[in-house]
Nucleic acid binder design. Structure first.
Lengths: 240, 240
DNA sequence: CCTTGTGAATCTATTCACAGCG
DNA sequence: CGCTGTGAATAGATTCACAAGG
């Protein structure tokens, strides 16, 4: 065919998307250490992936490297940030202010990557009213969620950090106010409308995957250790 | 039962291993609800994956189904448990008893899936000596790790739940006592010997992946193609 | 020389489609 | 019949290998 159809932004595979934050973190470390230029080989060593993978990943964002030299660290960071959308403000609502919810809100990666705690909810009276996190957001009762997040107060991302039995109900509430993306930490498969983006993080699945490989290894003496990615999370974290 | 060594032919892809705990959890729910037989179609619906994927996954464990009927729920659970190795005792050491470490130790999936808290470590004097988790294990100082876990006390899995700057040091200590598998929650790429199994769980990566897809979606909406599509993730998401 | 960027080849995972069996 | 189990086809991701360019 004669003309190439105008491609909307180059399609980036999910496997690449998951590695981009890792590259970004390493590049920031390197920049702070005074490394202003970095080769795919060097970045690959630090991320424990192959250099070809780094080049392929980065080439999907555009041609930012200089042949014979490498990539400009600072510029590459800015391009990855732009691709990831972390140069924007991402208000996040967290439901379930137990240890997990607190860990998330207090984590380094949260505030430093453009994510902002917009609202916190729990059902436990002893937690409601408490100020949590670096930005000291007050925990509200889950019943206040609908009115609290309605309209222009609707955050971009909802985090479900409740026990499993409450997860679907909480998710329904988040969907009702119009939240377009949900990150679920509860060990349960959730149902959402097809236009809602849903991802999972499941601590116990990771432990069970480890026990699988360890059992395998102890049974197979010659065990060819599964060469797992050094980077990122479960590729199948999208069971929803 | 199972005496045969079928290493080559029965190799299970990682993508399948990650789904097995999900199937197992759903099957337990179903069994508790009185469902003693289940079809691949039904299980697939509950897990939000395709029926073909369920059948392919399960067939890798063996031929446990009955044609025309489906799978016996209880038997299937036992077979998945066996494959995952969760019918064994898995002593786990957790380093870093902040919110994340506590969330893990207290999580449902931990004790209920054969994982046992063998030891807890931190560096904060205000935490050391505290009894944490359902089994009330006393937190020890990180300096006691080497002697505490030496020899026959060496756990099967080490969990790194420290801040990023401490993660590599802690990992080195865990590797030194002979721990064969490490689950890292710190936002940092770790270096381990090739015979140590290493997996990552990174909360901030998941958030950044979400912001990537959400940004993509918001840009597509303003583009010339108003076509509604479940963005990015699930191949089976369009089942709706 | 260097290192990037990328088609081609390879490896891995998913889906299709139907034979085979209860 | 209905449903499993599985080769064959397809889609996706990684690695290879080298041309192109500073």
């Amino acid at each position: 065919m004669s003309g190439e159809q105008e491609q909307r932004s180059r399609r980036i595979p999910e496997a690449t998307v998951v590695r981009l934050p890792v590259y970004e973190r390493i590049l920031n470390d390197q920049l702070r250490a005074g490394v202003t230029t970095i080769s795919s080989e060097h970045l690959a060593t630090l991320a424990r992936v192959s250099a070809a993978k780094v080049r392929k990943d980065l080439s999907l964002l555009g041609s930012f490297g200089t042949r014979g030299t490498g990539y400009d660290t600072e510029f590459l960071i800015s391009q990855i940030d732009r691709a990831l959308g972390v140069d924007r403000d991402w208000p996040v609502a967290v439901v379930g202010i137990g240890n997990l919810g607190r860990a998330l809100v207090n984590s380094e990666g949260f505030s430093s990557r453009g994510f902002r705690v917009a609202a916190l909810f729990d059902i436990d009276p002893s937690v409601i009213g408490e100020e949590v996190g670096p930005s000291s957001v007050v925990v509200k009762h889950i019943d206040e969620l609908p009115e609290s997040l309605a309209g222009s107060n609707c955050p971009a991302i909802g985090v479900v950090a409740t026990p499993a039995p409450a997860a679907q109900m909480v998710t329904d509430a988040l969907v009702s106010v119009g939240i377009p993306s949900i990150l679920n930490f509860a060990p349960r498969v959730l149902t959402v409308p097809t236009d809602v983006l849903l991802r999972y993080v499941d601590l116990s699945i990771e432990l069970q995957v480890m026990s699988f490989y360890q059992r395998l290894r102890s049974e197979e003496v010659e065990g060819p250790l599964p060469q797992l990615r050094a980077v990122g999370l479960t590729p199948g974290a999208e069971l929803g």
